[in-house]
Nucleic acid binder design. Structure first.
Lengths: 147, 147
DNA sequence: CTTGTTGTAATAATATTTGTTACAACTATA
DNA sequence: TATAGTTGTAACAAATATTATTACAACAAG
C-alpha cells in the first residue's frame, strides 16, 4: 500500500507556510483551502508537526509557523512526525504464522534484518532532502510557471 | 501506511516452496497452513506470482513450484508482482489540491522528482537481495534453532 | 467417475484513512 | 467584559483498502 497522503500534505503545508507567511496569517483554514482538505485534518497534522518540534501553532488568535531552520528539517523528520506506524516498521507481516512450521515460526528472524536494511535505504534518502531544498524547488516551479 | 503483508506472505510462500518441495506436494492449503491465512488468499497471490513468471501452478492435480533460478528473483520482483498500487507510486497525494493556489496547483511538479528518487533508493535496495539470499538466511535460522 | 485441486466470483468482515460536526478553551481587541 | 476568530480535540461518519470466507465450475489423474 501507498504511504499515506498525510506525508505529502505535511510537506505541502510546510511549503505554504514558508511561501505565504508574509502575506497571510497561516490559519488551518487557509492551509486547508490550498490542500483542499478539511481544516480539522490540517489541525491534527499541525499537532503532529508541533510534537516533532517542526512548527509552532498559536492558539486563540491563530497562526502557524515553522520553528526550525528549513535546512535542519529533512523529509524524514516530516515523515516520522506524521506517519504513525507502530514501531516505525515499513513492512507488515501476517499475524500468527504457524508455529508448527519451521518457516512459519522463524519468518520474522529470517526477514527482519533484510527488511530493515531496505527501510534504512529509504530513510537515508529521505534524510538527504531538506525542506529548504523543497522550498527552493517550489519557488523555481512557481517562477517557471509565469514564463 | 505499511506495505501490505501480501509482500511478506509472498516471500514466506517462496521460502516454503523451496524448503518443502521434496517432502510435500505444495498445495495452496499447505502454504495457507504455514502462513496461517486462507487458501484463497494464497491462490490469488500465486496467480500474481505466476503472471510475473516467478512460479508455475498446476491446475487440477495441484502443486506450485518456482520456475526461475532463485538468484534471478529479487525481492523487488516479488514486491512488484504482488503490490498492485496504481502506476507503482509509493507516495500518495491528496486529490484535487486547490488550482487557485500556486503551491496547490504545482505540488506534483514540486515533489515528484524528489519522491521518485526516494522510491528508487527503496527499489534499488530491494533489487540487491535475491530469494536465494533469503532461502540461505532461512536455512541458517532453522539450523541454528536446533542447537 | 471419484477425489483432490486450482481459478475465480461474490460477498462479508475488518482495518485504516479521511472527512465532518460540534464545542470547549483560548487570545486579542473593541 | 463581550465579541470574533481561532485552535485542540472528541465523537462519529463515510470512504477505501485489506483480508477472509463461501461457493462452485474447470481441470487432472488415477
Amino acid at each position: 500500500m501507498q504511504i499515506s497522503s498525510r506525508f505529502t500534505i505535511a510537506v505541502h503545508v510546510l511549503i505554504c507556510i514558508e511561501t505565504f507567511k508574509e502575506e497571510h496569517k497561516i490559519t488551518s483554514d487557509f492551509l486547508a483551502s490550498s490542500v483542499n482538505a478539511n481544516s480539522v485534518i490540517i489541525r491534527k497534522l499541525l499537532q503532529q508537526l508541533k510534537k516533532a518540534g517542526i512548527v509552532a501553532v498559536i492558539r486563540g488568535s491563530g497562526g502557524a509557523d515553522i520553528c526550525k531552520s528549513l535546512d535542519a528539517i529533512t523529509l524524514f523528520d516530516v515523515y516520522e512526525a506524521v506517519e504513525c506506524v507502530e514501531d516505525g516498521k515499513l513492512f507488515h507481516f501476517h499475524e500468527n504464522p504457524n508455529p508448527l512450521c519451521p518457516v512459519g515460526r522463524n519468518i520474522h528472524s529470517i526477514l527482519d534484518a533484510r527488511l530493515e536494511q531496505i527501510q534504512m535505504a529509504l530513510e537515508k534518502e529521505m534524510k538527504s532532502v531538506t525542506i529548504q531544498d523543497i522550498v527552493n524547488d517550489s519557488q523555481k516551479m512557481i517562477a517557471e510557471e509565469k514564463v
